[in-house]
Design a protein around this nucleic acid. Structure first.
Lengths: 342, 342
DNA sequence: ATTATCAATGTAAGCGCTTACAAATGGGTT
DNA sequence: AACCCATTTGTAAGCGCTTACATTGATAAT
């Protein structure tokens, strides 16, 4: 032994290879600016010392981290998990690393995480949904960190976004529901406060009701947390109502799965006694019985496109375009006409 | 206007507050080493400039990042998502930030991610499962980064781990299965290559079979990917066998859900014609019909304990203990005796 | 033979922070 | 009044890297 046992630095490599630190740095970052023979010598030194560049030092000197940050409301949710996985894969191909953190749906936490990510030198940020204190955007601007909103598409928003039209998609589903003859409609929504996606889905139902001559105010709405259990509770409440709604539209598949489970427990058969719909088309939707009529969202495609757009923004190749992803209705077995009508 | 529009530094704050950079740094990191009046002045400057410390610079100077890294096989999996969420929450309470990346079950990718995380200055690492090139551990040692293995508990392993006894838990379930009268047992397992959890679960079944006088080699085993679809395919293959197995034990709930779905499609009723079991007890297990008989793993508890132990290690308060989390059998409706026996 | 050109490499100045050490200040003690 | 000690603050030396600029040596053009 007798060796210094701490991690080797650029300097150690330089000495071992008999070159300057600049040359080692070049070998690592722009190999073509260094002659073959030298590079081999350097690379061998790197190898034998087990050298790993110190990222903090690199970021500091280069003012570039090749890191993208993403802040999602929760990791415990298939729809974010799936889209993000694809987002990450795509980023990796372009040489970027993804840093994810979750805000637990808390705007204060989100703000803090944004600052953390920026402080860490993220070159760009992926955010979920538009609803956000404008101060945050000016902070990002000051630090010159481009950001892209995902899981929500809003052409009227000032910021670029990659996502789908929550209002329109839910509206389309509502139209199908109404066309099937329902007019006592209930909805179980996720929390709308600070969550434009949930809000848009509610709006979609309301607008379509209005468009069909139904009083939008007559929509029975329950807002609750994103959990199967909560969906079940809400469904129970709705079934206790008199007159009962003939259809329960859920803001997402998880809530719908809860509703379905409770229906089973209550001995209410779906869709004979009451219809249920979901949103997202996660795997769960196909597993439950009856299988859910829902709206399919191509999360992977969204993740991929978001990655492309954001890297383009980071590299100065785009000012930030908004991209709309198409959703599509998936008719399965949880929606039928209202009971008594045939 | 006229101002320099780039992000303010410690120096800017120092000037604005009329103190030295050292004082500003102290205000931020050890406020009690600074007199109240000064601190207020400094904090106000921080506020009005919208200052955020540069993380890279801080890490470099302090050689401490208050960051923990975690590398999981995939994000697209409820069991990791849940445990990790809790892990993160617990870390936050102790002032640490979590960095997650996923290796897509690829050891090469995992190795690279470990290097990345270390290069980023992670103070400690959470890894999934023991199976790993020893070279990685010596690398971590050289860089003096403590690591903790989770989702797997193995008292015989050299490294500390927080998890549960996969072999024992699956063995217990197998005992229940065998006691119910089954002896034509099939298993649908996740890929065991480089995945000690999957391997241990298979071992659990084999050992219990042996312990009950059943030839362990008679276990019909299909290995496949962690996907509902794959579980369905495997189940279909098993049902084509003659003689048919009377029970299909699945390595996890996702595979079991696929099996159940396929059973429905094939018109095979569970558990009358064939029994099915799962592992993990994710939410899905309660949703499917029949509800899954499975092994409950307290993922949240594990995440919490892992966080506590790892921070203790990072702070030099622990050499790294191994912690075993208890699982428990959950009897629901997918397991009964073999058909024809009553 | 002389000079312009260019590729390969070296030199050294930071990047924004923390922290060891030094300096200054203000009481207590004797 | 002289001295000591504790508290608060300042000074400045890095942390490990990148990169603008300088230097060198070789090759091509005159």
């Amino acid at each position: 032994m007798g060796k210094n046992r701490s991690a080797p630095t650029l300097n150690d490599v330089a000495k071992a290879a008999g070159v300057s630190t600049a040359t080692v740095s070049r070998c690592l970052n722009s190999p073509d600016r260094v002659i073959e023979a030298t590079r081999q010598r350097v690379m061998q030194a790197v190898e034998s010392l087990g050298y790993t560049p110190n990222f903090a030092a690199r970021v500091m000197a280069a003012k570039r981290s090749y890191t993208i940050g993403a802040i999602i409301p929760t990791m415990d949710n298939a729809i974010f998990a799936r889209g993000l996985q694809e987002f990450q894969d795509q980023l990796r191909e372009s040489g970027y690393t993804l840093l994810v953190s979750s805000s637990a749906y808390d705007p204060e936490v989100e703000r803090e995480q944004i600052r953390t990510l920026v402080a860490r030198g993220a070159d760009g940020l992926l955010l979920i949904g538009h609803a956000r204190d404008p101060e945050i955007y000016s902070y990002l601007e000051r630090h010159q960190v481009p950001s892209l909103v995902a899981w929500s598409y809003d052409p009227k928003a000032l910021r670029p976004s990659v996502g789908f039209d929550n209002t329109g998609a839910m509206g389309e589903l509502a139209q199908t529901v109404i066309s099937a003859g329902h007019h006592r409609i209930a909805m179980i929504s996720g929390r709308t406060l600070g969550n434009d996606r949930a809000q848009s889905r509610v709006d979609g139902v309301r607008q379509t009701m209005a468009g069909n001559g139904l009083e939008p105010g007559s929509l029975t709405l329950i807002e609750t947390d994103y959990e199967i259990e909560k969906g079940a509770e809400a469904f129970q409440q709705l079934m206790a109502l008199s007159p009962r709604p003939t259809v329960v539209m859920c803001g997402n598949d998880v809530l719908a799965a809860g509703a379905l489970r409770e229906a089973g427990r209550l001995g209410i058969s779906v869709p004979e006694h009451v219809s249920v719909t979901g949103f997202d088309d996660i795997e769960l939707a196909e597993i439950v019985s009856p299988a859910l009529t829902t709206v399919h969202v191509p999360h992977r495609e969204m993740g991929r496109k978001a990655a492309r757009e954001l890297t383009a923004m980071v590299e100065g190749n785009s000012e930030g375009r908004s991209i709309c992803i198409n959703t599509r209705l998936v008719n399965r077995n949880s929606l039928a006409g209202p009971p008594g009508q045939k």
